[in-house]
Design a protein around this nucleic acid. Sequence first.
DNA 1: TGCTTTCCCTATAAAGATAATAGGATTATA
DNA 2: TATAATCCTATTATCTTTATAGGGAAAGCA
Lengths: 148, 148
Amino acid sequence: MLSQKSKYALRALLLLARQPPGEMVLVGEIAEQQNVPHKFLELILLELRKQGILFSQRGRNGGYTLARPKEAITFGEVIRIMDGPLAPLPCASVAGYRRCVDCQDERTCEIRQVMCSVRNAVADVLDNTSLADAIANGLSRERTALAS
Amino acid sequence: MLSQKSKYALRALLLLARQPPGEMVLVGEIAEQQNVPHKFLELILLELRKQGILFSQRGRNGGYTLARPKEAITFGEVIRIMDGPLAPLPCASVAGYRRCVDCQDERTCEIRQVMCSVRNAVADVLDNTSLADAIANGLSRERTALAS
DNA sequence: TGCTTTCCCTATAAAGATAATAGGATTATA
DNA sequence: TATAATCCTATTATCTTTATAGGGAAAGCA
């Protein structure tokens, strides 16, 4: 399940991705527009900055902006930062592998094998969807909906 | 993330799937072999029985057995019973759809669209993997491992 | 220089979900 | 009727998520 934190993070990033490149936006503006608690959003944006997703400036005329082009930020990267590994089980994770303490034989564990397939299927979607992709799909859907 | 409950449930079901069809197994035996708390496993098996996955018999010579052939029980079905919908967001779920309370326009929500893709990718794996499939894959991997 | 605005940082509380335990009720068999 | 097993409800314990609070530090401007 996607956490509230990831949802807020993605909302904020999509909002920033819709701005002209380099445009600074205040935490308060994002919070208000997206219905996210201000202070909670601060924590989220702070973490995204530390992880190189956002660039920030303090003081007057400060705010946040994407640290990279919107084509170069994927859903997978964002969700991993907020929620941790994509895999349904630690033992099926590539980046965040951890052995199951009560697993009798990982090499033959059927559950692990299936969860590895799930992990790959999920990563295939999320690591290949950028903020730009998501926005573009949204627009094309919108056009389709209006045309029909 | 897969819950402990789902993991225990799948372990128990895979154990039962490896028995001769119709063979009754005690909760206590499953709990011991799979390192699962006895009383907790009882709750899990009980729910699986209510949902038509297991058949049980009380009293002496009682126990649990699969209510259907192992080819006809999928990971998706089991995980939905234990953990609820597969989708990362309620608004992206087919079976358990629920609107996001703070969503401004679901029709154009980019996050929802991506999460629908994730849901489909996950369901595609889990709804097409039966207990029998998982056991068969495990064996073939074992053979491969031994051969190499 | 001092004032304001903004992000930055740490700590903690509140709420909810998950995991587990407990104790007995019911049923089938020998 | 004794026994062994599942069945059922309630409760506790633990952990995670979500959110709040209060101030610290830097940037710009008068």
